[in-house]
Design a binder for these strands. Structure first.
Length: 693
DNA sequence: TGGAGTGCCCAA
DNA sequence: TGGGCACTCCAG
């Protein structure tokens, strides 16, 4: 356990027979010697030292501190509990990470001020994962734990304290892989996961797939084998669907849904049910990836391309990465699923770390709607209502036939503000600033355009693609589109699902359903047609992930449409020659991701390389870089002013993938040094920055 | 919100 | 020159 202490003083502990340091000796003496005065603290007989992580944002304090545990605190002060400690003179919150026999600390240890609650909210597995996540993202353990544990609600602890035996029996459902039989390696994955093997898969759902039920079946397989399951989806709507599927497949009461909008009491209550092992299956949004299930057997993430899975709070971990870290440490199975595939998931497949689960072509063909590209050129010239509504003849025809067949039509439009509001009047490409490539908008109350980012006046303007000199306002936003479609299809019911007016489901009856990405209502039996508007503009966005994100949105809409055999049609408003359009037409997410990853390799972009961003005031970034000891082979880009120059500067640091941890460690060291010095000019560190241009 | 270290001032 | 006092910084 422990050798000679720093003082060189060694003794034999009479209680345990262990050799001990001078500190241990004192404790031993106090244990056996005179009767303590009333109120005097006596060190615990067993493991009298608590190692705690203090709740401080200072990164040089990102390590464990030792405190003494009194005999009276000993029973409550279990690993994973919340405690209060006197630190630098004041009382602060901390988590007790472990109990040990002796401390390496030279100097006297203070006692824990108090144990807030005997409830252990952190399992050793979650603490270890959080530590790795902090290391991976150059952040602190405290920051990660803040993401992992919901705020305490004392009443919720009390209420369920007396809950009897946890529900650890086998579920009523036998292992069924029928739903997965359409996928060549699907049943094999389920068997492996149920058998406790650390199988890792990237799953591409076939068109029209009932993915919540598939996930629930996978959960049932692992739950049935007596092991824990964690499943994460991007938003509350997805969670509602998964929740319902879990109840159907597993039966009631066998899982906990950790939604963020439950309110503090219920949220904490369910978290505790998971931690206490009363349920083995935890599902939820972003933060659920840290759910402390017992004996983790499977962790799954669905739709990992959704940017909601990127945590917006420091140290900005991505759910997919956290899931990978947890599954690797717990030796559990892992599944990254979705209709589309990210370049990151593709990298896992290509490196052999994960195996693909895909449906054979025949299955995809039978399930997919007919998908056609209508080109970028809207029906212009003709002064028809259809032209106003940005509909090509093909789109108009598909919508009309669907309505005639008594089926709803989905119209997917970009979110307001997602696209530049001005486009070339001739070729319809987004109008961009000559200087910074920012989006152009009209100067209020005039017909001259200026850049939304740098403010430069764009006059005279000419289209870099077709040299036209006139631009037009882009019809954008679900409201405007609905209005214009209403004119084109007089008498048809119009439904808008966007923003805070989202319809989770709609009946299968004729209607035009205008929805923004992620807000598409689900229709039982499927839509008769889907029109995907503004495709070319989506693809033209100056964003590293523009193509990947566009395919993800298109597939999310197209999967809600009936198969071609039942007349289902999808019309996408983009040029059929584009690789992304072809990938949609062929329903080939894997091929598209492979092309995407190859392109990023070529250009030296993530995930083919590791990247980090350092952001802050010009002085702060410069001071940080001064402090930073760049690992060998690291390449510094910038610093340059951010899009909005008043928000400071950003430097990017690029390094080959195998050295990503080295880079993170160097960044953490630099942060710690600056924080110890109380450097006044702040700089934020972000690994894998999502937006880089 | 405690204790140690530091620096300044003033009395001897 | 040394003691006392106020202030700052550390961090168990």
């Amino acid at each position: 356990m422990v050798g000679a202490g720093r003082s060189g003083l060694v003794s034999l502990d009479p209680m345990t027979g262990d050799t001990n340091t001078s500190r241990g000796t004192l404790a031993a003496r106090a244990r056996s010697a005179r009767k303590p005065a009333p109120g005097e603290l006596v060190p615990a007989a067993e493991l009298p030292v608590a190692r705690v992580v203090v709740d401080s944002p200072l990164s040089h304090l990102d390590r464990l501190f030792d405190y003494q545990v009194s005999q009276a605190q000993s029973d409550d002060a279990r690993p994973g509990t919340r405690v209060r400690v006197r630190f630098a003179g004041r009382l602060i919150d901390a988590y007790l990470v472990e109990r040990v026999e002796t401390s390496d600390h030279v100097g006297k240890l203070g006692y824990l001020d108090r144990v807030v609650s005997a409830e252990s909210v952190l399992s050793p597995e979650v603490i270890a994962a959080a530590r790795s996540v902090a290391d991976r993202y150059a952040g602190t353990l405290t920051d990660v734990l803040r993401l992992a544990v919901p705020p305490r609600h004392a009443r919720a602890e009390g209420e369920t304290a007396g809950v009897p035996a946890p529900a650890v029996g086998a579920p009523a459902v036998p292992l069924s892989t029928a739903g997965w039989a359409e996928y060549t390696t699907g049943p094999a994955f389920l068997h492996a996961a149920a058998a406790g093997r650390p199988a890792r898969a990237v799953w591409q759902a076939r068109p029209g797939e009932d993915w919540p039920t598939r996930l629930a079946e996978a959960a049932a397989a692992v739950d049935g084998a007596g092991r824990g399951v964690v499943m994460v989806v991007p938003d509350a709507r997805d969670l509602t669907r998964l929740d319902a599927a879990m109840t159907t497949v597993l039966g009631p009461g066998r899982h906990a849904s950790l939604a963020a909008d439950l309110g503090p009491a219920e949220r904490y209550r369910r978290f505790l049910a998971v931690r206490r092992g009363q349920v083995r299956v935890a599902i939820g949004t972003r933060s659920a990836v840290f759910a402390p299930v017992r004996d983790l057997g499977l962790i799954a993430v669905f739709d990992d391309g959704d940017d909601l899975l990127a945590e917006p709070r420091s140290p900005y971990p991505h759910v997919r990465e956290v899931a990978m870290i947890r599954s690797a440490q717990a030796k559990s199975a892992l599944m990254i699923g979705g209709f589309a595939r990210t370049a990151e998931a593709q990298l896992l497949v290509e490196s052999g770390w994960a195996h693909p689960i895909e449906a054979p072509r025949a299955v995809i063909r039978a399930a997919a709607p007919r998908i056609e590209a209508a080109g970028d050129d809207y029906a212009r010239g003709a002064d028809s209502a259809a032209a106003h509504a940005r509909l090509t003849p093909a789109a108009f025809d598909a919508a009309r036939k669907s309505l005639a067949a008594g089926l709803p039509v989905l119209v997917q439009v970009p979110r307001r503000g997602y696209l530049p509001s001005l486009a070339c009047a001739t070729c319809r490409r987004p109008a961009r600033c000559r200087h910074c490539h920012g989006p152009l908008g009209l100067v209020r109350g005039s017909d001259t355009a200026s850049c939304r980012w740098c403010g430069a006046i764009a006059a005279p303007w000419s289209c870099p693609a077709c040299a036209a000199t006139a631009f037009r306002a882009v019809v954008s936003g679900a409201g405007r589109t609905a209005e214009e479609l209403g004119r084109a299809f007089a008498g048809v019911r119009l439904v808008t699902s966007a923003g805070d007016q989202i319809h989770p489901t709609l009946p299968s009856e004729p209607a035009l359903v205008v929805a923004t990405p992620g807000a598409e209502p689900v229709v039982s039996g499927g839509y008769g047609a889907a029109l995907l508007l503004d495709g070319g503009a989506l693809l033209g966005r100056a964003d590293l992930r523009a193509a990947e994100e566009t395919l993800r949105r298109w597939m999310a809409a197209a999967t809600l449409v009936r198969p071609a055999g039942e007349g289902g049609r999808v019309v996408v408003g983009a040029d059929s020659g584009l690789a992304t359009v072809q990938a949609l037409v062929r329903w080939d997410a894997a091929g598209h991701a492979a092309e995407e990853l190859a392109a990023r390799r070529e250009l030296g972009f993530p995930p083919a390389v590791a990247m980090a961003a350092v952001e802050g005031s010009a002085g702060g970034v410069a001071a940080f870089l001064e402090e930073l000891e760049m690992p060998e082979g690291a390449e510094l880009l910038g610093p340059v002013a951010l899009e909005h120059p008043e928000s400071g500067e950003r430097a990017l640091i690029r390094i080959e993938l195998p050295r990503q941890r080295e880079l993170a460690a160097a960044l953490h060291t630099a942060s710690a040094a600056r924080s110890a010095r109380k450097d006044p000019e702040p700089a934020r560190v972000r690994m894998d920055p999502l937006a880089m241009f």
